Simulated assay, not measured.
Amino acid sequence: MPLQDGLELLALLSMGHFLGDFGLQSDRMAAEKCRGQDATLPWQWWLTGHAAIHGLIVALLSGVPALGLAEWGAHTLIDYGKCQHRYRIGVDQSLHLLCKLLWVLLLSLWA
């Protein structure tokens, strides 16, 4: 993959991430995806649904469903760690963006 294409995909994946985390995530989902905060549905459903949105965004933007599945899993683990108070939002967001960089690097190796 040419460098310019990789940088453009990284920008799109980053924008997609912020759309998924701040535009498409409701206040209820943000709270109830954490264990002990779930009032309307079990927390696992909220977390799975939120992470699946991110997986879909990555799959659609990259054109690689396997990367969408990888994102789904990674996003679940990262958000679970944040819900367990292992780190705060700055580390959380940095880890998510590092995943996007990893997906672009993997795609450049496959190309």
Rank of each mutant, 00 (worst) to 15 (best):
K33G: 00
L102P: 01
L106E: 00
G55S: 14
V64E: 15
M1K: 01
G23H: 09
A70G: 08
T40K: 07
G90H: 07
I57E: 12
G16D: 02
G63W: 13
K33M: 14
S94Q: 10
L95S: 03
A70D: 08
W103I: 01
G36K: 12
L95K: 03
H96L: 02
Q25E: 13
L77T: 11
M29W: 13
Y87L: 01
C99G: 15
L102T: 06
L24I: 07
L60K: 14
L12T: 05
A51C: 12
I78S: 00
W110L: 09
L3W: 04
P65M: 12
R28W: 13
A66P: 01
L106S: 02
D92Q: 02
L19V: 14
V91A: 13
S26F: 14
R35I: 10
G55T: 13
D27K: 14
G68R: 03
A111D: 01
I89M: 09
E32R: 02
L77H: 04
V91E: 07
A66V: 13
H17Y: 07
L101H: 00
S62P: 14
H85F: 05
H75E: 02
W103N: 00
D21G: 09
L95D: 04
E32K: 10
L12Q: 15
A31Y: 09
L19H: 12
M15P: 08
M1V: 12
C99F: 08
L77Q: 08
G49H: 12
L12Y: 15
P42F: 09
S94T: 13
L107F: 03
K82A: 08
A111R: 11
S26R: 08
A51I: 05
R28V: 15
L3V: 06
C83K: 02
I89Q: 07
S62F: 09
A111N: 02
D27G: 11
A66Q: 11
G49P: 11
L107N: 03
I78F: 08
K100P: 01
R88D: 11
V104A: 06
Q4E: 12
G63Q: 08
H17Q: 11
L56A: 15
